[in-house]
């Protein structure tokens, strides 16, 4: 963690992690709920400030996506 990740507590719901991708306003926000669910918000630059996509994942699905993103070797 550390630099470039903004952490925001969401009382009663969980924690939100904002990661800036590019100076143009491209970023992702990940909300980790207390019940294990993950909400991934994708913001693209330009236009409106509404999220371009929102994906809801279970803990298991998030772990898979996370492993692929992190480059962990992955065999079915």
């Amino acid at each position: 963690m550390g630099k470039g990740v903004h952490i925001q507590e969401l009382p009663g719901l969980g924690t939100r992690y904002d990661v800036d991708l590019r100076s143009g306003g491209e970023r992702v926000s990940i909300v980790v709920s207390r019940d294990g669910k993950r909400h991934l918000y994708v913001f693209t630059s330009g236009g409106t400030d509404d999220p371009a996509a929102v994906v809801e994942m279970t803990e298991d699905q998030a772990r898979k996506v996370g492993a692929v993103l992190a480059g962990t070797f992955f065999v079915d």
Partner: peptide, 28 residues
Amino acid sequence: SSAIATKLLIEMRRLANAETPVILGIIV
């Protein structure tokens, strides 16, 4: 109702909004 407000925030895709932590704090 905290349950209704929380569900609404998730469904309206507003969890990343600036005011959302404030709303959640108030209902808690």
